[in-house]
Nucleic acid binder design. Structure first.
Lengths: 342, 342
DNA sequence: CATCCTGTTGACAACGTTGTCCAGGGCCTA
DNA sequence: TAGGCCCTGGACAACGTTGTCAACAGGATG
């Protein structure tokens, strides 16, 4: 009896709807909706009957339909470079936590640092009608976002500024951090300092390079050819760059690494050398304390949290002009940046 | 003129629909749909007119409505423990890559190792009608998933088995890995070996402990009270456990760390001691090679990829019985596991 | 010239939910 | 006891899209 009933009412692969629940409970469609959404105006007895039908049928509200009707999806999109990068995990988690506090889910996408893929992802998220969007941009032209923003999708850019479009941004002080790190090396007696960074297309890469140049100029040091290398952060590329700077008749005595991936490779290269080489890296790394690596630390979780909070403030109706927040960095001396020139 | 037109047709915060596009292009609704979906049967001239209207209005298809009509959302859900944990970043990224190849987006959720939150997240994803679900379970009873699975949501459990429900699983060989790691320490002369692991509620934690016990028994060693500690992986807890094992008249000479978080803390504690202590950790860690930490490595990306591939195979209609895949682990000797007893 | 076919197009219903509005019954008041 | 009000419950349209089907034009065929 029970088996037969269930079989005829709920075909597998074909979920029961509110209509099915209503039929089984002997009430109207809207009454089921009221129970499901805990709306007032239902007698306890009716509610019980409906609830029983829901449990018996294994009904679950279809949020797709709900979204269509209500206009809000209670979800936000996060487009970043690579979730496997240890800098983005905590950032994403922080965003998720804020979203959760606002009852929203998080859709993640990795652009793999490819502008085309970034656009593809962002537009797919817009098609899903996410309520808001947090983007760590790969490209430098974001005019394609204009219609979406006008249409009401709140947007915050993170870590790097947006190109040709007016949105909220949350950035780290790349310039100031790099300048401080390089000045730190100079203060410990270095003059021949190498800089290895990410591709010049990427805003943080050029900002950090600018910090390097400023620190050098402030100290009256002329940067020689061969001390600066921008490009992919593939280990092979970084290794080659580092080895070249550390060889020759007049090698550099210290390295500044433009981000966490560069730092990791730089540490490996330096470890293979006999002559000690000073190192300061941008971004903190797990276990860096044990290895004694001096870093410029930016708080990834704080960046994510700040961005998400801005986003939801906008979603909750705030209509202030677009803001540009810059979060400070911290120099953490652990030994590698305090070595004297060899 | 242009401004007026745009303003009257497209109110801000109220996106144009296919109906609007149809009106502007002077065609029927369905024709717009055909153009948007690149369906055949539209003359080039009509297509051009529709495309112009689309561009002029900044139209973008509403995938919520599409989903409602088509029944598939082209999205999958991934519930894991904590995206900020370096083990899950690469796993999630691997899942995302497979999803992308199948045209699907990924919705992430962190359970924070809380069974209630896990269930809440999973059910929210089901309400969104994700096509499939990859779950790294926090709880041990998943009967709540039964109606969802019956209703057609493909599900794969990862890293830990599902409780009381028949689904595909992709696991690492926790037992075998731990046994191998402990045997490795024994082979290097250790007999007093401590085990520090995660909460016993977690399947991998008890499996690894089982591997420890088996290796010890195989070597004819009786495990003493105080050599085993299971519990939270908070640094304070792990530190206390490690310090206790390493103190007293007869301290352990080697530690086996049950996961990456435990390993990190264990390395710190050992570094503070004068007497060398051997260490093998479960899970690889960035820079572990430089620190010379011997580990049992599981390939997080491979786990994620395998799980996602299973999921999509099922979504693509395969109807084989539920499978249970167990991926092997690798012991990577780097020094810390080869130290002799002090 | 009638018929058939093919290829393009649009009208309409349906997906599952929620908002609006109205009906009916019970209870209170005069 | 009649009138009015409140409370509960249901009928119906709408959200924006896609699948079905029928209409129509134009060319080929008999």
């Amino acid at each position: 009896m029970d088996r037969t009933a269930r079989h005829s009412e709920t075909r597998y692969g074909n979920r029961p709807t509110m209509k099915d629940v209503a039929a089984r409970a002997g009430v109207g469609l809207k009454t089921v909706s009221r129970v499901v959404n805990s709306e007032p105006g239902v007698t306890p007895d009716t509610e019980r009957r409906v609830q029983e039908a829901i449990d018996a049928l294994g009904f679950r509200r279809n949020d797709s339909a709900r979204v269509l009707r209500k206009g809000r999806t209670a979800s936000i999109g996060l487009v970043l470079e690579d979730l496997a990068d240890p800098f983005y995990g905590p950032l994403s988690r922080a965003v998720e936590e804020v979203a959760r506090a606002h009852g929203a889910l998080l859709i993640n996408g990795s652009s793999a640092e490819d502008p085309e893929r970034e656009q593809e992802l962002v537009l797919a998220l817009c098609a899903r009608r996410v309520d808001g969007l947090i983007v760590i941009p790969a490209g430098d032209d974001h005019r394609y976002l204009e219609p979406e923003i006008k249409a009401g999708i709140a947007t915050v850019f993170v870590d790097r500024p947006a190109g040709h479009v007016d949105v909220d941004m949350v950035l780290s002080d790349s310039f100031g951090g790099a300048r401080e790190g390089v000045a730190h090396l100079i203060a410990h007696g270095h003059r021949r300092i190498g800089f290895i960074g990410d591709q010049p297309r990427i805003h943080t890469a050029t900002e950090r390079l600018r910090g390097y140049h400023t620190a050098m100029r402030d100290a009256g040091i002329t940067v020689e050819d061969g001390w600066v290398s921008l490009g992919s952060t593939e280990p092979e590329r970084v290794r080659a760059a580092a080895e070249e700077m550390l060889s020759g008749p007049e090698p550099v005595t210290a390295l500044f690494a433009g981000n966490n991936r560069v730092t990791v490779t730089a540490v490996r290269v330096i470890a293979e050398r006999e002559r000690p080489v000073a190192l300061v890296g941008f971004d903190d790394i797990e276990l860096a304390d044990l290895l004694g690596i001096t870093v410029i630390s930016q708080d990834a979780a704080a960046v994510g949290r700040t961005a998400a909070e801005h986003l939801f403030r906008r979603l909750d109706g705030a209509d202030h002009p677009t803001a540009r927040v810059e979060l400070p960095t911290t120099l953490i001396p652990r030994g590698s940046g305090e070595l004297p020139p060899a």
